[in-house]
Structure formats: structure tokens, C-alpha cells
Design a protein around this nucleic acid. Structure first.
Lengths: 146, 146
DNA sequence: TTTGTTGCAAAGGGTTTGCAGGAGA
DNA sequence: TCTCCTGCAAACCCTTTGCAACAAA
């Protein structure tokens, strides 16, 4: 249930979204902004200076940010939810390096034709999809050739 | 750490996989076989006649079946792991109807070209991907046209 | 008989809730 | 001042573990 204007992917503005501007919220956004990979709530919490917040506050705000479209929550293979700031307002996917954990966004999608073929094969109408990509980033490829 | 032969996707054979044949295991496999959608451990447990098992047994065997390649575990948007029997030995994806929950497998993949484009754009080497598809099955499309 | 499995109970770990006090606007 | 937000503690819930009893082979 997004509350903000239709194009919320710009620099998150607490005020514009009708949220009060608290140091906790700014700290959470800062940690997310500086992160190069999806972070768990606990990692975000640890990253906040002086831990001046409780974990529940982190969770509550994360949920808020996701519903605003500012962040995205990703389920890993473990039981932990991780969060990333959405840099792009467009449809995109996250590509995670399995060696160093760095995550980048890939704009666009590139699976449309594949989806169309699957629709024909299954008779389903495909309305949404979630694609998570894993591999190795350029730096790690260079470090560990093979 | 699969223990069975390289082609374990046929009808699961407990004996062939080096597992003892217990009523609990047969019951779990039966519930999964009859299911048309991914089931949580608790749903599987409830589906076993007379609940003649403890939840830990269900979890332990599910983990075993997954490592044998007989089943696959899927993370939904909630915090619950769900399980499906793999009908096909090939690379495939699961397509879930958002109206009735029915899930089918789509053989093949169809996103290869897209992945190649993403590799070029990102510089990553993509080694694995997870694609989950949502939409509406033929029956639900017929029932609720639009 | 041997050893893999099960059941119970309890622990674990991430996430959510209730509520009273605190602080933006 | 008026709400919204936060912090604390406890509750929740799914999943895992330890261990002794049990049963498949």
C-alpha cells in the first residue's frame, strides 16, 4: 500500500511521503545507500551509528520503505530477508556475486520472449515474475580466473 | 549432497537411494505426489493420515528428498518454505497461479538469451538463476475473464 | 543384531506485537 | 498540543537439535 506519488523511486524524501523525519529513518537509509549488497535487518541495525535504535524500528521502517517502492526485500536461500535500495524506477533484477556478495541491478529484463514461450506452453497468463541471478562479478572473475 | 545415481528424478525409490522404507517417508511422498501446489512442512504433516509422525521427521525427510533431487524448496513472499515434487529431470521453473495456487512446471528455460545480454551489460558471469513465475492458470482465466 | 529413523521436548533465530514514553511538526 | 514514532520486552512462528526408544534390514 504505497502512500507516495506514482514515481517514488527518486531520492527517498521522508517528508514528501508523509513520514516524519527521524534520525533513525535517516540512519537506515544511509546504511542502505552505502551498501553494495542486500543487507539483513540486523546488518542494517549494526551499521547504524551507536546502534541508536531498536531492531523493531528497523523492521518497521524497512517495511515502510518497501511499500513506498524505495527498497526491495529479497529472500535468500536461508531464512533471512535482505533489503536493497532500488536505484532504478524501471523493471530490473538483482545480480549477486557469489564470491564477494556485491549486488548490482540489471536494468530491463530480457526474458520477455522466454515468458511468451512459457505462456504458450502452459496456457497460463504470466503476470509477474521474480528473477534472481547469481554469478561472479568482474573483480572476482579477475581475481580467481577459471 | 545427493547420494543417489545421477538420474534421481524418476519415481523416487527409497531403496535405490539407500534410504530405509518407512511409512512416514511413504506418506510424505504420497502427500507431495497428490498436491497440485507447493506445500509447507506443516501442510504436508497435516495431510499425512493420522498425523503419524512428528514435524521434525517431516523436515528431516524433506531435506533429504531435496538433496536427492526429488523435490524442490521454494521461498514464497512469506517466511515459509514450501515443497514440490520435481516431475522433470531437466532445468525447469515453477509457475504458480495467483488465484488458486496451482503450480506447474515449465520445462526448459527460455531466458538464455536474456541472460547473455545481462552478462554483457554487467560484466558478471552468471552461473545460476532462480526464476519464479506468477500468473493465472487456464481454469482461473476462464472463470474470471478479463 | 546393527544401525538408520523416529518422536518428543526443548532450543534457536529471525521477525512481529503491545504498550507506554518520547519527539517531530 | 497532537499524533506519529520509538524502545523495550515479550510473544510468535517456523525450523532445527539432542537424545533415547524404535524398527527396517
Amino acid at each position: 500500500m504505497p502512500r507516495s506519488a506514482p514515481t517514488p523511486h527518486q531520492t527517498p524524501s521522508l517528508r514528501a511521503a508523509g513520514m516524519r523525519q527521524t534520525p533513525q529513518r535517516e540512519a537506515i537509509l544511509k546504511v542502505l545507500k552505502d551498501a553494495e549488497r542486500p543487507l539483513s535487518a540486523e546488518e542494517i541495525w549494526s551499521g547504524m551509528e551507536k546502534r541508536r535504535s531498536g531492531i523493531p524500528t528497523v523492521y518497521r521502517n524497512l517495511e515502510r520503505f518497501v511499500s513506498e517502492g524505495w527498497a526491495e526485500s529479497l529472500q535468500g536461500s536461508d531464512q533471512v530477508m535482505r533489503f536493497v535500495l532500488c536505484r532504478s524506477p524501471h523493471h530490473h533484477h538483482h545480480l549477486t556475486c557469489e564470491t564477494c556478495g556485491r549486488t548490482v541491478e540489471v536494468d530491463g529484463c530480457g526474458v520477455e520472449e522466454g515468458l511468451a514461450a512459457m505462456e504458450r506452453a502452459s496456457g497460463f497468463r504470466i503476470t509477474r515474475h521474480q528473477l534472481t541471478l547469481f554469478g561472479q562479478c568482474p573483480a572476482c572473475r579477475a581475481a580467481i580466473p577459471g
